[in-house]
């Protein structure tokens, strides 16, 4: 019986493959939901390629890399989409990715040289608050103020890790002191972005760690201009999201053309109002309206991918010690 099932599956799979090639893309959950960029990108790319795009989703960027490592070379992924520069060094080490050969006129605050990963969107981390409320202009001023801050846990959340590296990149050896001063401002540490942001909207804190682009969502989708991002003088830490082609893919041509598509005008135009991040290549029509009023940080902070692991462990230890008292 079992053999019959396998055989049937095999026959069906072969037939399907003979008809339309399937491009399997591993991504994080919110990318492929109804509100994320996934469905629009899928439709647009399928029109051009005559193929079938199949999204396979896991929780977040870190889980994405874990899944790939679990599967190793037997993975069915052709493309992995949604890692960020905090994960690319570890992703390089797996040896599971192939060079991309994509070239584009990137609109990033940093120079892009990674030969395995294509950046598709990016953003700055920032504290979001209510318009008209006090706006500390740096971490020290924030620590001295009585503003109540909601942050995410760096061990389980991408923005949480971003904040950890932000403080470390801006203050180096002084980072532990900054955390100690901040500790009485921190209301709580949530496991993920959603919990913190939800609590902020419920008035549980004055500020929440998110992205500089968050106010754009409230302006565009809710016509609400009362949420603002606070510009910090130290500069803002960045997140750059990337995609890469799996070396063992059975659809190398299709995968390459998808990566080209990802930095094309069509795809880049979809990202700002679905993923609420800046496009890696400015689309021809420019950015949507709500994006022009956003703050532009004076300085972009980003650790080199190969420094992340070492710095992260050190900073995590400091963070835990400072906040555990």
């Amino acid at each position: 019986m079992k053999h019959l099932i396998y055989a049937t599956g095999l026959v069906l799979a072969t037939q399907a493959a003979a008809e339309t090639p399937v491009l399997t893309i591993y991504t994080y959950d919110s990318f492929a939901t109804e509100w994320g960029p996934g469905p629009q990108l899928e439709t647009a790319f399928e029109e051009a390629c005559g193929c079938d795009v199949n999204f396979v989703t896991v929780g977040d960027g870190a889980a994405l890399l874990s899944r790939l490592r679990l599967e190793g070379e037997s993975t069915e992924a052709d493309i992995v989409l949604g890692l960020d520069t905090n994960l690319t060094a570890a992703a390089h080490e797996t040896g599971l990715f192939a060079p991309h050969e994509v070239s584009a006129d990137y609109d990033l605050p940093i120079e892009w040289t990674d030969d395995l990963f294509v950046p598709f969107d990016w953003g700055y981390f920032a504290f979001i608050g209510q318009d008209g409320a006090p706006q500390p202009a740096n971490f020290r001023a924030l620590a001295e103020s009585d503003q109540r801050v909601l942050i995410q846990d760096p061990r389980s959340s991408t923005p949480g890790l971003g904040l950890l590296l932000w403080v470390k990149a801006a203050y180096g050896d002084e980072a532990p002191a900054i955390w100690e001063e901040l500790s009485d401002n921190i209301v709580t540490v949530t496991p993920g972005w959603s919990e913190a942001y939800g609590m902020f909207l419920d008035g549980e804190g004055d500020l929440v760690l998110s992205y500089t682009t968050s106010p754009a969502y409230h302006i565009i989708a809710e016509d609400d201009a009362t949420k603002v991002a606070l510009p910090f003088e130290e500069g803002h830490y960045m997140q750059v999201e990337v995609a890469g082609m799996v070396a063992g893919t059975d659809q190398p041509e299709l995968a390459k053309s998808f990566l080209d598509f990802l930095v094309s005008d069509t795809a880049q135009g979809v990202l700002p109002t679905t993923n609420w991040m800046y496009p890696a290549v400015s689309p021809e029509g420019g950015l949507p309206d709500g994006f022009d009023g956003l703050i532009e940080p004076s300085k972009a902070l980003l650790l080199a991918p190969e420094e992340v692991a070492q710095t992260r462990n050190e900073a995590l230890e400091e963070w835990r010690n400072a906040l555990s008292r």
């Binding site: 870190a62 889980a63 874990s66 846990d153 061990r155 389980s156 500790s183 921190i186 209301v187 709580t188 540490v189 949530t190 496991p191 919990e195 609590m199 963070w319 835990r320 906040l323 555990s324 008292r325």
Partner: peptide
Amino acid sequence: LILGGGPAATTVELAIYQAFS
């Protein structure tokens, strides 16, 4: 984690998540 207010209130489940992810 949410009601504990900080990393002093870390559970084994979070440590497992950290080790894994």
